[in-house]
């Protein structure tokens, strides 16, 4: 999960937002982390670069936990 958190913070920093220091697994990507559709598009590319898995391919994921589940289901290993 640490790698995913680093990716999320990288996106936030590049768009001028502060880093998130404490993540909760049920945090909503949109409502809690503040990601819009452009940020989510970037997130899926960066995660795919890291894990070779497109987390949004079979539908939208909404929380950190769902990203983790999608990576586990699709054979990711973080």
């Amino acid at each position: 999960m640490k790698k995913i958190e680093n990716i999320i913070n990288r996106i936030r920093i590049n768009k001028g937002d502060n880093e998130i220091s404490e993540f909760q697994k049920n945090m909503s990507l949109r409502d809690d982390i503040g990601f819009d559709s452009l940020d989510l598009a970037e997130l899926t590319v960066l995660i795919e670069d890291e894990y070779n898995i497109d987390i949004f391919e079979s539908g939208i994921v909404s929380t950190l936990e769902e990203i983790h589940e999608r990576l586990l289901i699709d054979g990711g290993n973080n």
């Binding site: 590049n14 001028g16 559709s37 598009a41 899926t44 590319v45």
Partner: peptide
């Protein structure tokens, strides 16, 4: 891109070191 249909990408050639954050700002 599975979220937006397409995502906008860019390759940049630069003479000096630039950060992604600086370009985005």
């Amino acid at each position: 891109n599975s979220v937006l249909g397409k995502i906008l990408c860019c390759d940049i050639v630069s003479e000096v070191d630039i950060s992604v954050k600086a370009i985005r700002e």
